[in-house]
């Protein structure tokens, strides 16, 4: 067991624990901040796995933009942000059961499937850098990449339709 393994395990534990805190926190803002910790720990895991580009994208997009979006949504709507607001519904035990069951199943499945798989990190160094990902994005997956922009356009048009009353009469 190398130092890398120990650090990786610690980061994984951090991600799991803060993940649990995201769903158990009594305050929406606290939950969003715990989410930053989870996503940050995951980004550090990616770094250890030599996927540095993915790690920085994770920090920029998820820990940065998405969580900021969540906080803005909580601020701009009448979401219950104060302490003591009851966020739990009566379905809590059932939800915990389903989530636990899914978690156990998937972990068992992945451990079973990749028990004997071994990747030498020194040999794959560089596969997670910007260049190979850019290559894949603009060559093998160029069509899905371009079609995703159509999806964003649909979302933009839809957001305007649902929220913006017609300004002025033409």
């Amino acid at each position: 067991m190398t130092t890398k393994d120990v650090v990786f395990g610690a980061l994984g534990l951090l991600a799991c624990c803060s993940g649990v805190l995201v769903v158990t926190a009594r305050n929406v803002i606290h939950a969003a901040l715990w989410l930053v910790v989870t996503l940050g720990a995951l980004a550090a895991c990616y770094l250890l796995l030599t996927a540095d580009f993915v790690a920085w994208v994770q920090v920029l997009i998820y820990a940065g933009a998405i969580v900021v979006l969540l906080l803005f949504a909580a601020m701009l709507t009448r979401a219950p942000v104060g302490p003591g607001q009851d966020l739990d519904s009566g379905n809590r035990p059932a939800a915990a059961l389903v989530a636990g069951g899914v978690g156990v199943t998937l972990v068992t499945l992945l451990v079973q499937a990749f028990r004997s798989a071994y990747v030498d990190l020194d040999r794959v160094a560089g596969t997670g850098a910007g260049r190979p990902i850019g290559d894949a994005l603009f060559r093998s997956y160029v069509l899905p990449f371009e079609i995703a922009s159509v999806l964003l356009l649909a979302a933009l048009v839809g957001a305007i339709v649902l929220t913006r009353p017609e300004i002025g009469r033409r």
């Binding site: 997956y141 069509l143 899905p144 079609i147 995703a148 159509v150 999806l151 649909a154 979302a155 839809g158 339709v161 649902l162």
Partner: peptide
């Protein structure tokens, strides 16, 4: 012919329909 494009296409066909349902 690949699952990734299929997923993106699934979203492109679904998202406008979600919106149009509310109109």
């Amino acid at each position: 012919n690949d699952l990734l494009l299929m997923f993106v296409a699934l979203e492109v066909l679904s998202l406008p329909l979600y919106l149009m349902c509310g109109l």
